[in-house]
């Protein structure tokens, strides 16, 4: 067994240090060491998107990142999406649009959709589907997920318009 490595990161805006083996994925580190089990493992090879987290300024499938690679980086997981007790507009829209059934893919969709709305504040249906194609959902047929993302985009834009 190789020596464990001390990794210093910022997770959901809080400094977090953890000790891991180099072979442990970031997903494993988040779930089994840090105790953040919001990101899920559905496939282990980057094809389902359930483990999507934000790493620095990009989203990644955390099953395909080594925990040691996260050293010095900031990470956002689904647990860090809400502001205190106020749900993120995407979280609210997913609930209001019944965009989840079993809920296992939801954390990955929320993180991916959040990144989408930061890049494209009012995405088209096609842009939304392309961006989210790495996130598999087997329950919903995606219809209500797409609607929820669009509804959240409207709400975010309406609020930012009102603030100006």
């Amino acid at each position: 067994m190789s020596a464990k490595v001390q990794v210093q990161t910022t997770i959901n805006n809080e400094p977090v240090e953890f000790l891991c083996e180099p072979r442990q994925s970031l997903l494993e580190c988040l779930r089994d060491i840090v105790g953040l089990t919001g990101a899920k493992e559905g496939c282990g090879d980057g094809n389902c998107g359930s483990c999507t987290v934000r790493l620095g300024d990009r989203i990644v499938t955390s099953c395909l990142v080594l925990g040691v690679e996260a050293a010095g980086q900031s990470i956002t997981t689904v647990e860090g999406l809400a502001h205190g007790n106020t749900l993120h507009p995407l979280q609210k829209a997913f609930l209001e649009n019944a965009a989840l059934q079993c809920g296992i893919c939801t954390p990955g969709f929320l993180i991916a959709a959040d990144a989408l709305l930061q890049k494209h504040p009012q995405p088209t249906e096609e842009q939304t589907r392309f961006w989210l194609a790495n996130n598999l959902c087997r329950c919903t047929g995606y219809d209500k997920i797409i609607r929820a993302v669009q509804a959240a985009a409207h709400e975010i834009n309406a609020n930012s318009g009102a603030a100006q």
Partner: peptide
Amino acid sequence: IGGTPIQGR
């Protein structure tokens, strides 16, 4: 080459 989260890597 891969979906959105893959393209970051």
